[in-house]
Every structure is written in C-alpha cells, then in structure tokens.
C-alpha cells in the first residue's frame, strides 16, 4: 500500500464523516442529494460482496464494513430520521439516466462474465457518476453550505489520490486496471469545476453560490 492509496482512503472516510456530522449536528439534510447517497450505498453494496468470499487484510475488511455502515446510516438519516428537512423538490435528477447505461455497460465491458465481477464493474461505473445528482442539485439551487463543499472536496480528493495511486502502482508493480482507471479519470473530471469554485471561493471564506 502506497501513500496515495492510504491518503485516498482517509479522504474518502473523512468525506463520509463530514457529511454525517453535518446532518447530525444541524439535524437537517438540507442541500444534500438523497439520490446520490442511495447510489453510494448501492455502489458499496455491489462492490463489497466479496467480504463474504475473500479475505485480503484486516484493514480491507474493517474499511469496507465502515464504508457500508456510513453509507447506510447517511441514507437512513436522509430518508428516515430527518426526512422532513430533506429537499425532495430539488433532488430531481432522473436516476434511470444513470442506472440503465451503467448496468448495460457493466454487462458489456468487464474482466470476466461472472456475477461478482459484473457487480464489481457495475459499482465502479456507478461510483463515477453517483455524485451527479448532488452536483445537479447544487446547480439547481445555485448554492451549497460550506460544510457540504468540504464534503465534496474530500470526496473529489479521494478520486484524485486514487489516480496518483494507480500511476504509482503502474510504475512500481506494472499493475493497472483499465476499468478502474478510466472510471477514475471520468469521475475526477466531474469535480474539476467544483475544485475551481472551492479554491477561489470557499477557501477565501465565501459561501459557494453560483451566478
């Protein structure tokens, strides 16, 4: 495990904790896309089925379990405990536009045509687009709370660090996985516009609002 990989995992975990803390402290999930969070829960569920079939390391097992828990608790807070604060109106991205192409692609382009491998591929493709409902919601309302932008920043940082991890692994182990790398590049591109706004506005103490 290299430094980019571990920092990437830490960023990912931090993003999820920031989101949970934001919802818990404010007792509100205003500005958060429930659809994106449901997609992330589906991503982890379909990817981590190997928890039952393979053992890699204590770290791997614990992190997978923690990620799953965070995702499910977040979905519960949005659609359960704090559903009255959920902005259903602005969370209007059509999920079928993501789910249908992603499902089709995972059947067409995978490493082996086995259920676990197709589900893994599906989760990789889905993760690369899962944030779109959230970004769509922000562009629709034209603003985001600062803590929500911190969440998005760490989520984007995780993707960028994983790219560095793959470059490192390619250089040192001559290992690469085309499906993960292409999806990783795609999802990191989605964050570029946001990164720009984050650096030019949020880090200078301003609220993120779109013209």
């Amino acid at each position: 495990m290299n430094i980019f990989r571990i920092l990437g995992d830490v960023s990912h975990l931090l993003a999820m904790i920031i989101l949970l803390v934001k919802i818990w402290r404010s007792k509100s999930c205003a500005g958060i896309s429930g659809k994106s969070q449901v997609l992330f829960a589906i991503v982890f569920t379909s990817r981590y089925l190997d928890l039952f079939t393979n053992f890699f390391s204590i770290y791997n097992t614990v992190m997978k379990f923690v990620f799953l828990m965070c995702a499910y608790i977040t979905v519960y807070l949005i659609y359960g405990k704090f559903r009255k604060t959920f902005d259903n109106e602005n969370d209007s991205f059509r999920l079928e536009f993501l789910l249908i192409p992603v499902t089709g692609l995972s059947f067409l382009e995978n490493q082996s045509f086995t259920p676990l491998e197709i589900l893994w591929t599906f989760s990789i493709y889905l993760e690369s687009v899962a944030i779109l409902p959230q970004l769509f919601m922000i562009s629709k309302t034209g603003e985001a709370e600062t803590i929500t932008t911190h969440y998005l920043f760490f989520l984007g940082l995780y993707h960028a660090l994983y790219l560095a991890n793959w470059i490192w692994r390619y250089q040192t182990e001559n290992y690469y996985d085309q499906i993960a790398v292409v999806s990783g590049v795609v999802q990191t591109i989605f964050y570029c516009d946001f990164f720009y706004l984050y650096v030019t506005k949020v880090l200078k103490g301003k609220k993120l609002s779109l013209p």
């Binding site: 990989r5 990912h12 190997d50 992190m63 990620f67 490493q111 893994w120 991890n165 996985d177």
Partner: peptide, 10 residues
C-alpha cells in the same frame, strides 16, 4: 491474479 489485486482497493 489481476482480479484479486484490484479488489484489495476500496
């Protein structure tokens, strides 16, 4: 094994 290798990632 490439499949095992990638699945070590999260």
């Amino acid at each position: 094994n490439i499949i095992l290798k990638k699945k070590d990632e999260l």
